[in-house]
């Protein structure tokens, strides 16, 4: 068994603390708000100047002046605030946003992150990725464990241009939850039915197995959405 994209989002959502201020990247991270446990109050930040981002606007109810960082039309929750880019990046770079969940092309065993450019890419774009990677104290990566061609994305050293060195704290994938520690990668959880050897087989960098390493607590479905595949 492995997790679906929604399953990864579900597992990350369980770890966002009550009262945290969280920036979400595009892709799998954007699915996280749907899976917050009941009663958990988390404030979502969008780099273009929102604290308190709500769900995507219903069709026909979009406000042309309310978008998130992916330029999707979203809503503002009660208690939300809007502000300019300088204040928004003060929140990011200044360490005020406590958590960020982002996608990655590669993550190295020492926490190096590559998520903004692949070698040979002809038109580069960095956006806010570097400011997030340098500024957020709890930087989580949510991604598939291997590329679409089956190549490991958790490596001894990144091959793609770095977004920031030594910045990732934890990696959530369809196969595992892995912490990045001063001693390297620590395998904390595996997908239901997998064993650590199966995760290591798809990970280039060596994994240490945490005492108490266990299966992820992710149900097969949630509100009709398949979390395992």
């Amino acid at each position: 068994m492995t997790l679906s994209r929604e399953g990864i989002a579900y597992r990350v959502a369980a770890d966002l603390p009550e009262g945290s201020y969280v920036n979400l990247g595009i892709g799998i991270p954007s699915l996280i708000p749907s899976f917050l446990p009941d009663g958990r109050e988390v404030v979502f930040h969008s780099e273009n100047g929102i604290l308190g981002v709500g769900p995507t606007a219903a069709p026909g109810e979009e406000d042309p002046d309310v978008v998130n960082a992916s330029k999707e039309y979203v809503t503002l929750l009660p208690g939300s605030s809007v502000f300019d880019h300088a204040l928004s990046f003060t929140m990011i770079r200044g360490g005020h946003i406590t958590h960020a969940v982002i996608g990655a092309i590669e993550v190295a065993a020492n926490g190096d992150l590559a998520n903004w450019s692949v070698p040979g890419e002809k038109v580069p774009g960095v956006g806010g990725a570097m400011d997030l990677a340098f500024g957020i104290p709890n930087l989580f990566v949510a991604m598939t464990h291997v590329t679409s061609k089956g190549r490991p994305k958790i490596l001894n050293a990144c091959q793609c241009p770095l977004t920031a060195p030594r910045c990732v704290r934890r990696i959530y994938t369809d196969l595992a939850v892995i912490d990045i520690t001063a001693d390297g990668l620590l395998l904390r959880e595996v997908a239901p039915g997998l064993d650590p050897a199966a995760v290591q087989a798809k990970t280039e960098a060596p994994l240490q197995i945490a005492a108490g390493c266990r299966e992820m607590d992710v149900p097969a479905t949630w509100s009709g959405v398949a979390l395992r595949v």
């Binding site: 300019d84 990046f89 002809k122 960095v126 570097m130 400011d131 500024g135």
Partner: peptide, 18 residues
């Protein structure tokens, strides 16, 4: 850009606004 007709200076978003 791909034809080389335009120069690009790429700046991280937070650095750009600051």
């Amino acid at each position: 850009y791909l034809k080389g007709e335009l120069e690009l200076e790429l700046i991280p978003q937070g650095t750009l606004v600051e």
